[in-house]
């Protein structure tokens, strides 16, 4: 068991690769979310890219470290917050007297500016946050099934 544990946690290639890729993956995913209305991409795609950081952590350091590094309760609450934010931004159209999901205050700045498309931009951010937290939570949930329940119990068995 000790050998197995060491094999899982001290794989130098996986560890160095994940250390190298993780910041770039997170930054690039956040870039895709932030520039969703200007360049190709959007909330869904960028959110999944950021959530892949959890997989990188799991591959390099195992489930226990990934669970310590990422608070799953925050992820679960954050997903609901993102969904609520989307609904509130959609209701903004009703508050100004138009229909649901109406785009308001979109005529500030030039075409191609970061915040030039009004509520579309912030709806994209809220969906990105929601997908990031939701898919990250789902991935951690699936990893918890792959991981052994408790290391101490298995050591006792052997």
């Amino acid at each position: 068991m000790k050998f197995k544990k060491g094999l899982a946690e001290k794989n130098v290639i996986m560890k160095c690769g994940a250390d190298m890729m993780l910041p770039f993956a997170v930054v690039f995913g956040i870039y895709i979310i932030l520039f969703g209305t200007v360049s190709p991409g959007g909330g869904f795609q960028g959110g999944v890219m950021v959530a892949a950081a959890a997989v990188l952590l799991y591959l390099a350091y195992g489930y226990n470290t990934a669970k310590q590094a990422i608070n799953t309760e925050v992820l679960r609450v954050g997903e609901a917050c993102g969904a609520t934010l989307y609904v509130i931004l959609g209701l903004c159209g009703l508050f100004v007297g138009a229909n649901f999901c109406r785009n308001i205050f979109f005529d500030n700045g030039a075409v191609g500016d970061l915040i030039s498309a009004g509520t579309i931009t912030f709806m994209g951010y809220s969906v990105g946050f929601k997908v990031l937290t939701g898919v990250g939570f789902l991935l951690l949930l699936m990893m918890s099934l792959l991981a052994p329940d408790n290391d101490d119990e298995e050591e006792e068995e052997e």
Binding site: G36, T37, V38, S39, P40, G41, G42, E79, A80, G82, A83, Y86, V87, G90, F100, C101, N103, F106, D107, G109, V111, G112, S116, A117, G118, T119, I120, T121, M123, G124, V127, K130, V131, G134, V135
Partner: peptide, 28 residues
């Protein structure tokens, strides 16, 4: 109508915003 350079984002979040709401609630 939208000032969004990415037309797909404009369609997803403005013209079909209600559809995206349902999509994200499917995920939830």
């Amino acid at each position: 109508k939208t000032m969004a350079a990415n037309n797909v984002a404009a369609v997803v979040f403005d013209f079909r915003g209600f559809d995206t709401l349902g999509e994200s609630f499917i995920l939830l």
